[in-house]
């Protein structure tokens, strides 16, 4: 049996190499979640809403980010490309580095990303030297535009953010995996380790999750389960999945076995 070794399967993003393919979100829930995730899920990238970074000194979320972890500030709160650029620059000025996850929502009910504004923001930020990771609704044309705009990866949503509903957009994510040459990181809506595993089997490069872990009964245990599911899915993808028949079965004795000359 071959053991999976992340060292032989590096995840490269914006010139940085990561061993973990699990990106952790930090929104909405207790900041103590972060420690659990880093230790038990082995996450090397943690997203952080800049709008949440400025708070009471003793609870500043930046203090909860362990050393050696790459901080991925997001532009949550932006409603236009210009606002996203302003937030990204503010994050860089605060020492959050060059990575930025573009989140632009103009809908306060479903918090769905606005692809058009996201493409504009990606272009502006890429020109400014950011490693741009755009969160988007899985649409092939938009994904291609994001590639041309200078994105470092594509982050399609699996289902509405925070919903834990899993791969509702599976068919469309598969199209992105098949057609886009950048890493596809499935973001938002993944609710169970099995769903994370399934997305990885499909060829996603990484998984981003937050709510699934934050709402679990045992946060560290769930973080650990996600870690293993992501590794399993990655290994399955690399192994080449066995084919699945749409209907019927495949007989092992051929019907034409009697033919001799």
């Amino acid at each position: 049996m071959q053991k999976y070794d992340a060292a032989n399967d590096p995840f490269i993003l914006g010139g940085h190499t990561f061993k973990s393919r699990f990106i952790l979100g930090s929104g909405k829930y207790d900041v103590n979640l972060i420690n659990a995730a880093v230790e038990d899920a082995g996450a090397e990238i943690i997203t952080l809403a800049l709008r949440r970074a400025n708070t009471k000194d003793e609870e500043n979320i930046l203090d909860f980010i362990p050393k050696g972890v790459t901080l991925l500030p997001n532009t949550s709160g932006a409603r236009t490309a210009e606002e996203a650029v302003r937030i990204a620059k503010l994050a860089r000025a605060l020492g959050c580095g060059d990575f930025v996850k573009v989140e632009i929502m103009r809908d306060s009910k479903y918090l769905l990303p606005d692809n058009q504004e996201t493409i504009r923001a990606t272009e502006m930020l890429a020109k400014e030297g950011f490693v741009v990771m755009p969160y988007m609704y899985p649409d092939l044309y938009s994904a291609r535009d994001l590639v041309n705009a200078g994105a470092a990866c594509i982050m399609p949503l699996a289902s509405p953010i925070g919903s834990n509903k899993g791969l509702a957009t599976k068919e469309f994510i598969q199209i992105l995996v098949d057609e886009i040459d950048l890493p596809i990181i499935v973001d938002a809506g993944i609710g169970r380790p099995s769903q994370a595993c399934e997305a990885m089997e499909m060829g996603a490069a990484a998984i981003m999750a937050n709510t699934a872990i934050a709402t679990a009964g045992n946060i560290p245990a769930m973080a650990y389960a996600f870690k293993n599911a992501i590794i399993a899915g990655r290994q399955a993808y690399l192994s080449g999945l066995g084919r699945v028949l749409a209907r019927g079965a495949s007989a092992s004795d051929p019907l034409t076995g009697f033919l001799h000359d």
């Binding site: 829930y29 809403a49 949440r52 708070t55 609870e59 937030i87």
Partner: peptide, 11 residues
């Protein structure tokens, strides 16, 4: 629960 003093950015 998580007390939040501010989760906002003026843009």
């Amino acid at each position: 629960l998580q007390p939040v003093l501010n989760e906002y950015i003026f843009v």
